[in-house]
């Protein structure tokens, strides 16, 4: 369970998160929507401790992410993350990209790490690209590689930060399909996304962020059908 309490985050004098309260249960798929600069991506970075916070707390399975004594490297193994820019390691093959962290972080043997990597690459449909370098892969394939790389750490939660925003339109589908697959398998996911179709079809709940505030959260039927907030309705009218 991820519990976010009164979370406040500043970049310098600019407040980007203004007191967020949010709980994500295991098995849940939460989509976070909102305009650019609404703080939704920053929220993800605060959850896995890539950004420091100024007030409030983030607790993952009982561990306070931002507390002094927390072993953040250990905790991050539970929190897989996929970024807008896929960030494949360019000097490693697809297989090595996925096998690296299990080997050096979890201390798996080379063969174990290789098996894990093969399994995860098959999982995302890249079993024919095991020995390809990222430069030989399309954006969609590299993003699926990034998903496999995160899954290889056997995370409890997956955080997706606009995973399809940087992709050419014709490549968005394959990545969304992979994310759908994970959702069907019961993975707990927080997806910051601009894909309203995905948010509507796959999510258990949808949260709308507006200028650092979580304006509204609820089941997709509610958000897309009868949003209570004026801002939410306006935003959805504009993106459709």
């Amino acid at each position: 369970m991820i519990e976010i309490r009164s979370l406040e985050k500043y970049f310098g004098a600019l407040q980007v998160l203004k007191g967020i309260d949010l709980t994500v249960e295991k098995g849940e798929v939460l989509s976070v929507i909102g305009a650019s600069g609404s703080g939704k991506s920053t929220l993800l970075y605060c959850i896995n401790g890539l950004e420091a916070i100024q007030k409030g707390s983030v607790v993952v399975d009982g561990t306070n992410v931002h507390a002094k004594g927390t072993d953040i490297n250990k905790l991050r193994q539970k929190l897989g993350m996929v970024f807008q820019q896929w960030n494949s390691f360019p000097h490693l093959t697809a297989l090595e990209n996925v096998a690296l962290a299990p080997r050096i972080v979890k201390g798996k043997s080379r063969t174990e790490a290789r098996d894990i990597a093969e399994r995860q690459l098959r999982h995302v449909g890249l079993d024919d690209k095991l020995n390809a370098y990222p430069s030989a892969l399309s954006g969609g394939q590299q993003q699926r590689l990034a998903i496999a790389r995160a899954l290889a750490m056997e995370p409890t939660y997956m955080l997706f930060d606009e995973a399809t925003s940087a992709l050419d339109p014709e490549l968005v589908g394959e990545v969304l399909d992979t994310m759908r697959l994970l959702a069907e398998e019961g993975m707990t996911m927080i997806c910051v996304t601009h894909e309203m179709g995905f948010a509507r079809d796959v999510s258990d709940r949808v949260a709308y962020f507006h200028q650092g505030v979580m304006e509204e959260i609820g089941p997709p039927e509610q958000i897309f059908g009868e949003a209570k907030s004026e801002h939410t309705r306006k935003f959805l009218a504009n993106v459709r």
């Binding site: 896995n48 490297n73 929190l79 960030n87 790389r149």
Partner: peptide, 13 residues
């Protein structure tokens, strides 16, 4: 920075 954050997000020190 994005590449390094990706590495850190995997639990690398």
């Amino acid at each position: 920075r994005p590449m390094r954050r990706a590495a850190r997000s995997l639990g690398m020190s």
